[in-house]
Simulated scan of single mutants.
Amino acid sequence: MPAGIGATAIATVTEDRSDVAVLHLRGELDADTAPQLQATLSQLLERPVPRIVVDLTALKFCDSVGLSALITSRQVILARGGWLRLAGANPFLAALLDTVGLSTYFPTFPSVAAALDA
């Protein structure tokens, strides 16, 4: 189920396991691209128990609007008994998550494989 996110970022959804979706983000996640991310996440949230790994390996930039989309989705997912994990954040994104206090809010892993195995 591929979905595009604006001109500067693209999201692709893969199913590494039947019960887990991996959302691969590329480019920039900002005010221009966050609505498309929210649309993609909304589709994934329709699952009875959403389990999502967000692959940040190719994401170069994320602003507060992008973070807000992830926070809102995580709240819905937890309410439904699922989980959302972040994987492969580059140094900029890892520092951003630390700076705004989200590194303890989101389970983060060095790779998608580590997030899936957790």
Rank of each mutant, 00 (worst) to 15 (best):
L41D: 00
A9K: 13
F61P: 01
R17G: 14
T14M: 15
L23R: 05
R26Y: 09
V22Y: 07
L25C: 12
I71G: 02
T72F: 12
E28T: 11
L37P: 00
Q36L: 07
V65R: 12
P48Q: 12
E46P: 00
Q38G: 01
L78E: 13
Q75V: 14
L44N: 03
D55Q: 02
V13C: 13
Q75C: 12
P50H: 03
V20F: 13
T72I: 13
K60F: 05
L70A: 02
G66C: 06
P48N: 10
G66L: 05
T72H: 13
D55N: 11
I77A: 05
T40K: 01
I10M: 15
P48W: 06
Q36Y: 06
R47T: 04
T8Q: 15
A11I: 14
V22R: 06
L37M: 05
C62F: 05
L78K: 12
R26L: 07
L23G: 04
L70Y: 04
T8I: 15
T14E: 15
L56G: 02
P35M: 00
L37R: 00
V22A: 09
K60L: 08
V49A: 03
T72C: 13
D19E: 14
D63P: 09
T40I: 10
V65W: 06
V54F: 01
T12P: 06
R47I: 03
S73N: 08
T14Q: 15
T14Y: 14
P50T: 05
P50M: 06
I71A: 03
A9P: 13
R26E: 10
L67I: 11
S73L: 04
V22L: 11
D30M: 13
A11M: 14
R26D: 08
